[in-house]
Computed example of a mutant assay.
Amino acid sequence: MQQIADHLGVSKFVVSKALSGKGGVNETTKERVIQAASQLGYFTQKSGYVKNIVPTSIPLSTDPNQGTVLVLMPNIRFQNKDSLYWGKVLEGISRELELRSLGMIIVSEPRGDHFLQAINPEGILGMVGVGQIETSLLLEAHRTGFPMVLVDHEDYLIPSDTIFANNPDGIARIVNHLIGLGHRDLHFLGNASFSRSFRDRWIGFRSTLEDNGLKPQEDHDDMLMLEGIETGQFQERFIEWAQRRIDSKTLPTALVCANDLIAITVTTVLNSLGLTVPDDISVTGFDNIDDSLRSQPALTTVNVPKEQMGQRAVRMLMDRLSNPGMAQEKILIAVDVVHRDSTAEPSH
């Protein structure tokens, strides 16, 4: 802690307060302390950070064949059991825990940085985090010493095992499919800052075009900064963009969307503007949610095995409990393209 204090030019007392989670330090200072602590390797020192903070009532060694797993799935960005994406991940977690006769506590509305205080730590084996989770919440979970697996999210400040769909490979497959159909003017729709998966999909899109000698759109393009993706509020912005492109005769021949929700909304808008998918323009999605099959036309997309990701997260947690000293892992689950009716050869 003294090293961190010296590094930031603050007192050791401030560092102690920031890392203890007890309050008394403003958020800006707290974030600076956490960032510095991560850079200096504080969180990875088992004898330093976790051991000194874990209450003595929490067993440091638990039988992985009995107990309960904490599932943290903050209800932000529609991350809940009713989601066509996150609900499937949760089903996979639940199924695997049931097969192992383990219990599950779902925390979906954590209040502040101290949500674990309301949970009896006795019998908690570890935690599976699902989707986007604030650093402050992950820090509290890490502070307890629970082993942790994150699904579709990672935080560079908090060491943990992680599981992702192989987003770069999936987007590369779908872009190569479009190029094989003859498309040379492709445009990506999403927001690279929305999630780690969206960023990886954009990077994969850009790299695949460059590998094929094609030029991707600029990083500051309007369609890379969509807001309101979960609610469809980006629709107005897309209408303005599409109308400008139609008027200037610069509309791409294919739109590669960061997920199915964007692609379904985009298809509806294009129809309202008098364009037909895929005759006038091809559209692809990503995730293969149930609505992608029901959309008109049925959406060409990338299938993410959502239930299997949830199941694999539980197995990964059990592996960590059995082998606490093994190196942390980042697992990529294979994905594949689902060819449907929203893609065709370019009309021009």
Rank of each mutant, 00 (worst) to 15 (best):
residue 208 T to F: 05
residue 14 V to L: 06
residue 141 A to Q: 07
residue 78 F to D: 13
residue 61 S to G: 10
residue 32 R to S: 09
residue 180 G to L: 09
residue 297 P to Q: 04
residue 280 D to N: 15
residue 48 G to H: 09
residue 157 L to S: 11
residue 324 P to H: 15
residue 90 L to Y: 15
residue 236 E to R: 11
residue 330 K to L: 06
residue 314 V to S: 05
residue 145 G to W: 07
residue 7 H to A: 11
residue 208 T to Y: 00
residue 169 D to H: 01
residue 60 L to F: 02
residue 157 L to C: 14
residue 249 K to W: 10
residue 154 E to P: 03
residue 170 G to A: 06
residue 100 R to K: 14
residue 6 D to I: 14
residue 27 E to K: 13
residue 82 D to L: 10
residue 122 E to T: 10
residue 326 M to T: 12
residue 119 I to R: 08
residue 187 H to W: 06
residue 237 R to A: 00
residue 155 D to S: 12
residue 347 S to G: 10
residue 232 G to D: 03
residue 225 M to K: 06
residue 252 P to G: 03
residue 165 A to W: 07
residue 64 P to N: 14
residue 257 C to S: 08
residue 155 D to T: 05
residue 130 V to S: 02
residue 9 G to Q: 15
residue 219 D to L: 15
residue 206 R to H: 08
residue 226 L to H: 00
residue 297 P to M: 10
residue 261 L to G: 09
residue 40 L to Y: 02
residue 198 F to Y: 11
residue 124 I to P: 05
residue 304 V to Q: 15
residue 65 N to K: 02
residue 247 D to S: 00
residue 51 K to F: 05
residue 287 D to N: 15
residue 59 P to I: 12
residue 218 E to F: 07
residue 189 L to P: 06
residue 69 V to Q: 06
residue 161 D to A: 05
residue 197 S to P: 06
residue 195 S to T: 14
residue 235 Q to I: 09
residue 284 T to A: 15
residue 49 Y to E: 02
residue 125 L to R: 11
residue 17 K to R: 13
residue 217 Q to W: 11
residue 115 F to T: 05
residue 341 D to P: 08
residue 105 I to T: 08
residue 125 L to H: 12
residue 277 V to L: 08
residue 320 R to L: 02
residue 182 G to S: 08
residue 26 N to S: 12
residue 336 D to M: 03
residue 328 Q to S: 14
residue 118 A to D: 13
residue 299 L to M: 04
residue 125 L to S: 10
residue 294 R to W: 07
residue 109 E to F: 04
residue 97 L to H: 07
residue 228 G to C: 13
residue 326 M to N: 14
residue 267 T to W: 10
residue 249 K to H: 12
residue 139 L to G: 07
residue 192 A to N: 01
residue 6 D to W: 13
residue 165 A to H: 03
residue 18 A to E: 09
residue 314 V to N: 05
residue 69 V to C: 04
residue 348 H to R: 03
residue 311 Q to E: 15
residue 201 R to E: 01
residue 91 E to H: 06
residue 82 D to Q: 10
residue 213 G to S: 04
residue 156 Y to I: 01
residue 5 A to H: 05
residue 40 L to K: 02
residue 338 V to H: 13
residue 281 I to Q: 07
residue 14 V to N: 08
residue 56 T to Q: 12
residue 348 H to T: 01
residue 331 I to P: 05
residue 249 K to I: 06
residue 184 R to A: 15
residue 218 E to P: 06
residue 308 Q to T: 08
residue 115 F to A: 06
residue 248 S to P: 03
residue 334 A to D: 14
residue 65 N to R: 01
residue 93 I to A: 05
residue 40 L to P: 00
residue 50 V to M: 11
residue 311 Q to D: 13
residue 337 V to N: 01
residue 150 L to I: 09
residue 3 Q to D: 14
residue 38 S to Y: 04
residue 33 V to S: 05
residue 70 L to R: 03
residue 104 M to S: 06
residue 131 G to C: 02
residue 341 D to F: 09
residue 83 S to K: 02
residue 316 M to P: 00
residue 7 H to Y: 13
residue 178 L to H: 01
residue 87 G to L: 10
residue 24 G to A: 08
residue 38 S to H: 07
residue 255 L to T: 02
residue 4 I to G: 04
residue 132 Q to K: 15
residue 178 L to N: 07
residue 290 D to R: 14
residue 129 G to E: 11
residue 101 S to L: 04
residue 240 E to N: 00
residue 197 S to I: 01
residue 148 M to R: 00
residue 152 D to M: 10
